[in-house]
Design a protein around this nucleic acid. Structure first.
Lengths: 338, 338
DNA sequence: TCTTATACTGAAACCGTTTTCATATATAAA
DNA sequence: TTTATATATGAAAACGGTTTCAGTATAAGA
């Protein structure tokens, strides 16, 4: 592999001049520029990025921390991020935390060891003060969470409102005994959603059913399991806020198996508008978040911080959600009759 | 940020000794080792990875090239890869090609610029001779494709056999007019599947229907569209090999809408055993590939090549597929009656 | 006692760039 | 003509580690 030194020698010029050509800097005569380009071409030279990184103190690489990439919400998010980052000439390294505090810290170390210029966190598992200590090593932006005391940019949808709207929709459909499901309980997202859920119940003078509340609803299988548990309650449930299309799909799967009619006997509402929500029968009413826009925004904000080195203060980028009403909460018959 | 020099000074020792401690090398007395560790701790020192990379000529980073991360097959693959890589202390950077030859080349450049130690390609869009030219810069392994003339490790499922088995299953269910769908047509996967498909038809003395053959079946929407097109043919179709669970799901969605009964009027078979295939009603018969094992194997083989620097020759790691028979090709009634 | 081997330590070279600084020349302004 | 300014070039320092090599001290073997 030829180095810049070889190119310089071959072109009969100094490394400095070659470097100027590589980086499109001024103060190189056209004649020499051509000369250098020719030399690079003929030697098949390509600059070594480790050396560039060391000297220029930047990596043009971002780390994206997420629980697991197979969750469609996160895969869509990181898809958008990678595309945007690539447009800016940045690489994206993928960091699956699997909800582990330790792994989250391990990956944040990438910032300290200068393997990345910045970090996007799409979930936060450690206490904020732990995260905070990494901030001196480089910018961090948080996506999909909202931690009040933290002074970094946040990109999110108002989960409280979203859950409120979803719950209100269930109530308008006539649900009176509504179950609340959430994933990881230490996440702020769950807390905000619960709060919106409770607000809707309260305004409608409906009771909260702690027995029909589960905090381990994360995927299809947990959805199926929780459905079976709900059936065992002596209190009949006619509506479920799942917080996830996959959980909703799992519940519907089980409902069909058990002969429970959705939405007539039980209305089920998902979250994220993943493709599964359209495909299930009945199709799943869900809350759409503008995932692509959010992903792009994260990258833009982060790169802006990296390239302009401005100390990040609190910054809120709130995106709008949208309720997608489908058949898991809404009987088409009613529509036909009206 | 403190450097190794600061640590050395603080500990009253040389950079060399500090380096030895960092890298767990012998020939450091216990006393000095403690001394260095204490100094690192107190200064909050962490080695700069750009400097390490430059000197030691390795990055401990892998690039994974894939069409798009939102395709569940690839997200499951990369999930397994990331976990395995992380166990070996390697980072994974994600490279979405979107089937573009140019992007594929751009990402292969990471190898030349020494930003990664090796590359995993989960699809191949350029001619092999183009790829070949990057091999002198570092090891490449190919996953999910099988290019005969190429002398690198391949990790794959025998797509010809898989398609043969799937088609045979359709035929055994009584299908006589079977449509063949595939995604990207320049991919070898499609070619092998087509070959297996044809073999099954031939052995059963059934005709191949070129009019009912589509090469743009990649997702739910294309599945829906193709279903509608198939309906417009004057030749009635009673079986479809889709090559993708998402395409199959899209077709089933449309079938339900149009009152076509699956599998009575038309049997549909997917590929990949994604969670959607179990959730649809009817659930989708599909071909399972051991995605996790394949992902892990890719990383193992690649890291082995990186760390032992042995020139890679042809190496075939063939994994077994498994037909998962579900309701989109198989009437449960028949099972009950028997 | 004299080699010889082994454990420990550090000075200096090296990895391949970019950046700083000094110098030279050409052009414009005074 | 002199001075200031802009353009063009290269030598050398810097980035922050690891590796080579040489040197010293101590223990073991002849």
């Amino acid at each position: 592999m030829p180095t810049i030194k070889d190119v310089a020698k071959y072109a009969g010029l100094s490394r400095t001049t070659v470097s100027r050509v590589i980086n499109d800097q001024p103060y190189v005569s056209d004649e020499k520029r051509q000369c250098v380009l020719k030399a690079m071409e003929e030697l098949g030279y390509v600059p070594n990025s480790s050396a560039r990184r060391l000297r220029s103190q930047k990596t043009e690489t971002l780390a994206v921390l997420l629980p697991r990439i197979t969750n469609p919400f996160f895969s869509h998010l990181i898809e958008a991020m990678e595309i945007k980052a690539s447009q800016w000439g940045y690489q994206v390294i993928i960091c699956q935390t699997h909800e582990s505090e330790q792994k989250e810290q391990d990956y944040l170390e990438l910032l300290r060891t200068k393997q990345v210029d910045g970090v996007i966190m799409t979930a936060v598992h450690n206490d904020w003060e732990v995260i905070e200590s990494y901030r001196e090593c480089g910018p961090i932006v948080v996506c999909n969470e909202n931690i009040e005391e933290a002074q970094v940019p946040f990109i999110y949808v108002n989960q409280e409102e979203a859950a409120y709207d979803a719950t209100m929709h269930l109530i308008q459909q006539g649900c009176k005994n509504i179950s609340f499901l959430s994933g990881d309980d230490d996440s702020n997202v769950s807390a905000y959603r619960r709060s919106g859920f409770l607000k809707a119940l309260q305004e409608s003078s409906l009771p909260f059913l702690p027995n029909a509340s589960y905090a381990n609803a994360i995927d299809v299988n947990s959805g199926r399991e929780i459905f079976r548990e709900l059936r065992r309650l002596n209190h009949p449930i006619d509506g479920v806020f799942t917080g996830s299309d996959e959980v909703a799909a799992g519940m519907i799967y089980e409902a069909i198996k058990e002969g429970v009619r959705v939405p007539e006997d039980m209305s089920i509402i998902g979250f994220d508008n993943q493709s599964i929500s359209m495909l299930m029968s009945p199709s799943i009413t869900t809350v759409e978040q503008p995932v692509q826009d959010m992903g792009e925004k994260c990258v833009e904000v982060l790169i802006d911080q990296i390239e302009h080195k401005h100390r990040s203060v609190r910054e809120d980028h709130v995106f709008e959600h949208e309720l997608k009403v489908r058949n898991s909460t809404f009987q088409e018959i009613a529509l036909v009759n009206s």
